[in-house]
Nucleic acid binder design. Structure first.
Lengths: 146, 146
DNA sequence: ATGGTACATGCAATTAATTGCAACTACATT
DNA sequence: AATGTAGTTGCAATTAATTGCATGTACCAT
């Protein structure tokens, strides 16, 4: 699989450059196990090239996000996480604001929502990786009991 | 209308306190025209009471968000905005990542999504104020032309 | 292969947001 | 009304993220 060269191609055709720093950030994202923070990616890259700057990491993540190669998600823990989109495929999270439990949500729900919005307004939404907050079944029942 | 005293009641029954600082922040949120940043709220409150601290503003917004009295939304401009939920009712935004145009989205779409999720998993999602990014009809057509 | 240029980088400085802690205060209970 | 306590505040320090700018470099066109 030539994900690496594919990505380089995408960068070039969109007027961006495939710099060594970017390739290292890409590698960190692709080999990482999803949900990486900017700081974690930074640390990873620093191992082989200690002179990268954190601002380069943020800027690269911004570009990759724009190109929809990575998704950015705040899981409610306070830090923003980044994930290589093709790595895990589209997926979503339901996060309980009472007990912080995280469960996953099938993409189909959002696929349908996206299709509806698209059909009625022409706007094509990016629904790659959502964090939806709310109250889980257990906490809700417990709250009702009081 | 006794929104003010209602809110105070909500605060008290949930184990929080109705401090003067909070009442001023509440007033700023209720009189403001939606989509206020923490800094804007801070400035507003400082007019009558210059000794508040920005951390108090953030902490109060956190509490109000938890109680779902305000919604927090990143409109993609880089700053997080807060809005008094009952002030404008539930509404959502479609934001084009190409031309930055912002249009609104009827709540019904998300109401339906919420009902579905609730029915199948028991998880009750908060879908008060979403910012959905994507590509608007105009930009999409323009992109296809190339 | 070379050169020009638009894009990227690193650094430093700035702004946004969070956190630890001692002092303080709202308010439920008495 | 007085009191105890849990919750809150302001301050200072920290961490996260962004931005301006001069220098550097990828890569397209020749």
């Amino acid at each position: 699989m030539s994900c690496e060269t594919d990505t380089v191609k995408v960068l070039r055709t969109t007027g961006h450059k495939a710099t060594p720093q970017r390739l290292m950030i890409l590698a960190a994202l692709r080999h990482g196990s999803g949900h990486l923070t900017a700081t974690e990616i930074f640390g990873e890259v620093q191992v082989e090239y200690p002179y990268v700057d954190i601002s380069t990491v943020y800027r690269t993540l911004g570009v990759l996000k724009e190109l929809r190669l990575v998704s950015e998600t705040d899981m409610g823990t306070g830090d923003t996480t980044y994930e290589w989109v093709q790595h895990q495929g589209r997926h979503h999270h339901l996060i309980c604001r009472n007990c912080d439990e995280v469960t996953s949500l099938d993409h189909q729900y959002l696929e349908d929502l996206g299709a509806e919005i698209m059909a009625e307004s022409g706007f094509k939404p990016d629904l790659d990786h959502f964090a939806i907050f709310g109250v889980c079944a257990r906490c809700r029942l417990e709250a009702e009991r009081n």
